[in-house]
Write a protein that binds this DNA or RNA. Sequence first.
DNA 1: GCGCCTGTCAACCGATCGGTTAAATGAAAC
DNA 2: GTTTCATTTAACCGATCGGTTGACAGGCGC
Lengths: 115, 115
Amino acid sequence: MQTDDLSAKFAALADPTRRAILSRLCEGEASVNELAEPFDMSLPAVSKHLKVLEMAGLISRGREAQWRPARLEPMALKGVAEWLEHYRRYWDSSFDRLDAYLTKIQKGDPRGPRN
Amino acid sequence: MQTDDLSAKFAALADPTRRAILSRLCEGEASVNELAEPFDMSLPAVSKHLKVLEMAGLISRGREAQWRPARLEPMALKGVAEWLEHYRRYWDSSFDRLDAYLTKIQKGDPRGPRN
DNA sequence: GCGCCTGTCAACCGATCGGTTAAATGAAAC
DNA sequence: GTTTCATTTAACCGATCGGTTGACAGGCGC
């Protein structure tokens, strides 16, 4: 199992079904049955996807009678965005400036992002 | 194999070794041996990681005599950032506002992000 | 040419992944 | 208490993943 928080989040996002579930949860809480409805997939499969998302902290789950509604936990995504932000300057600068930077860099001033 | 572009990128990023390689490449091009040096891992393993990153479009590779230097391809990360950006408003708003939004949403105006 | 250095390919390995079906759990409804 | 609905667990499956070792290929120095 991967204990690394960032890895768990990226891995959770690396599946289109799970991303679709997140997208659906933007409209509000939803039960497992509701979440499963658009997919050609058994309920246990969806349940597993929800567990992956929950383990990654991307969603949380409630308890309402026999329902276990899932809800978006957006702060987890913020962590991912912050990691990405380190690289923004590499694509924000024009291609030419990037090339200049990459070739110039040979002597000192690396200051790359932390992994 | 997963053909989905976004999935390939997230999957590539879901490994700490590969993220460390990307981080290293921020300091400029590097050969496979240079990239492998910090890791307790065989060269073919690193070569495989590079192939995953290349297939995801996150790096590109040159050809200089017997070296195959790898270089960061930051525009690929921009695509990931744009996907994430859809969710920014969910973590940018305060917790209370989010809760209000999620409960209010029951009637209309979903406008969630596209998967 | 020969050897050396760099890198990849091929085959294998155990672990994890994404899915299945069948059975078990929990709470509500009757 | 039995049924019914919502969900999870367990066991299994084939495919992929992340790593290994060993053989192979390309380009340079001598």
